[in-house]
Amino acid sequence: MKYFLRKLGMLLFTLFVALTINFFLPRLMPGDPAQALLGKMENIPPEQLDSLRAAFGLDSQEPLPLQYVHYLGNTLRGNFGVSFSRFPMPVAEVMRIAIPWTLALMGISTILSFIIGTGLGILAAWRRETRLASLTVGVFSFIRSFPYFWFGLVLIYFLAFKLRLFPIGGAYAVEATRGSAAWWLSVLDHGILPALTICISSIGAWLLTMRNNMINVLAEDYILVAMAKGLPLRRIRSLYAARNAILPSVTGFAMSLAFIVGGGLVTEMVFSYPGVGYMLYQAVNAKDYPLMQIIFLFIAASVLVANFIADIVVMFLDPRVRDGAK
């Protein structure tokens, strides 16, 4: 329980830090980019302009702490401002459209890559004298040093452009009626290649972490005891080795996740996949600061929550954590 509360406190605090970074970033930057941009926007009604000014701290009359309080209040009320590039659409509305795509794409591919990568890592450590194990480790280490977006480009080029196995980009067939069977099929069709990009690029991270953990665990005395007891190898591998080796993997989930989410965002950009990452790309190009900010907040919050969930999973997997002994 103490563990749970501590992790919950950490979650709330990191969320707060993310909010704060979000608040100070535009205010700390030299050159007042927002000011310059506002200057260019002529067809904005004055009251909207005022709220934008407030959002970016351009009201110099108001002292910073007060601005901060207003910002926190607005955020808690779900008031994130309006998009510059899709004026006068509220950024929250833009997000409402983009989020499901990202959650589906990244959620599925992250879970898949975790399962596959961890599984391969277990086997690569268990059979580490074999040629196949070294080959797998080598191949995935090589792939891991590819830039995600470039790997996406390569897959698009060969599988979509040359072999025409998959669509080149987008998330669904525009001509299909939304919700029809054909539309759903096209969603699947469009999702495979980006998902493949994220999966293959990120499997290496899980694989190498799990392999190293496994190798460390396999040198523990309790593995030797298990062998001496004459337990079936399958039991040793799963309940003695993997069960212990996975704990640091789950704990390190946050770090790996932050990378994978970063890679996933860029993958969306390459595939013009209409999720949060592609929105971010468009927002950056259009200098749509309110949209950028909410996207940053959203990504940070999702990673933090996922990390919190991982902490809770550890609690169930590790009796020591459960008792607060570790």
Binding site: M10, F13, T14, V17, A18, I21, L25, P26, M29, P30, G31, P33, A254, M255, L257, A258, F259, V261, G262, G263, L265, V266, L280, A283, V284, K287, Y289, M292, Q293, I295, F296, I299, A300, V303, L304, N307
Partner: peptide
């Protein structure tokens, strides 16, 4: 360190880079 560790890096970099005019 622990707090900054979990704030996803790439989005942070993108947002900072977008604000820097240089």
């Amino acid at each position: 360190t622990n707090v900054m560790l979990v704030i996803p890096g790439l989005p942070l970099m993108i947002v900072i880079a977008a604000y820097i005019t240089m």
